[in-house]
C-alpha cells in the first residue's frame, strides 16, 4: 500500500515494476494514468495548477486504499498524485492494483480512481484564454463513484 503526493513526475514503468517485485503470488496488475488534456470543454488550456490539502490529502488516499483492500483481495496498491503547475500531456495521477487474479485487479484499480476523484482533496485551476478557471466537480464523477457505493450496499444486503 503506497501513497505518494508529490510535485515531481513519476516513471510509470519503474513504479509498476517495483509494486509487484518479488511477489510471485500476483497474477495481474492493473493501472490507470491520468493526463492533462489540452482542452477544457471547447476552451484550449495552456496549463493547470493542482492545489491540495497537505495532511488531509494523504489521509484521504490512505482511507481510499484501505477501502479497496477491504473490498477486493489485493496484494498491493499504489496511488501517486501530483500537485503544482502541470502542462498538457503531463501525467497527473497513477493508480494501480495487483491481485492473484485479473478481476480484482481491474475492479480495484477502477474503484481507486473513481473514489479518489470524488473524495481526495485536490482542486484544479485551469489557465484558459479568459484567465484562471476553477474546474467544477462533475456529476459524472459522482455517478461513477456511486456505482461502487451501490455495489457495496448489494454486498451488505446479501450478507
Amino acid at each position: 500500500m503506497t501513497i505518494k503526493v508529490q510535485a515531481e513526475d513519476f516513471d510509470v514503468g519503474a513504479e509498476l515494476v517495483a509494486l509487484t517485485d518479488g511477489d510471485h503470488g500476483v497474477g495481474g496488475l492493473c493501472s490507470f494514468v491520468g493526463l492533462v488534456r489540452d482542452m477544457a470543454g471547447t476552451e484550449p488550456i495552456g496549463a493547470m495548477t493542482l492545489e491540495h490539502y497537505p495532511g488531509m490529502t494523504e489521509k484521504a488516499l490512505v482511507e481510499i486504499e484501505a477501502e479497496a483492500c477491504e473490498r477486493w483481495p489485493l496484494s498491493s496498491t499504489l496511488i501517486i498524485h501530483r500537485y503544482g503547475r502541470l502542462e498538457p500531456g503531463d501525467r497527473i495521477v497513477l493508480v494501480a492494483a495487483a491481485s492473484a487474479h485479473r478481476e480484482a485487479a481491474f475492479d480495484g484499480c477502477h474503484f481507486l480512481i473513481d473514489w479518489l476523484k470524488t473524495r481526495a482533496p485536490f482542486w484544479k485551476l485551469e489557465d484558459t484564454p479568459d484567465g484562471g478557471q476553477w474546474v467544477s466537480a462533475r456529476a459524472d464523477d459522482d455517478k461513477a463513484a456511486a456505482r461502487w457505493a451501490a455495489a457495496s450496499d448489494k454486498t451488505e444486503a446479501a450478507e
Binding site: Y53, H81, I92, V93, L116, P121, F122, W123, W134, A137
Partner: peptide, 8 residues
C-alpha cells in the same frame, strides 16, 4: 473549507 474536489 473548500469546494467539491476535482483531482484525478
Amino acid at each position: 473549507f473548500f469546494p467539491p474536489v476535482t483531482g484525478g
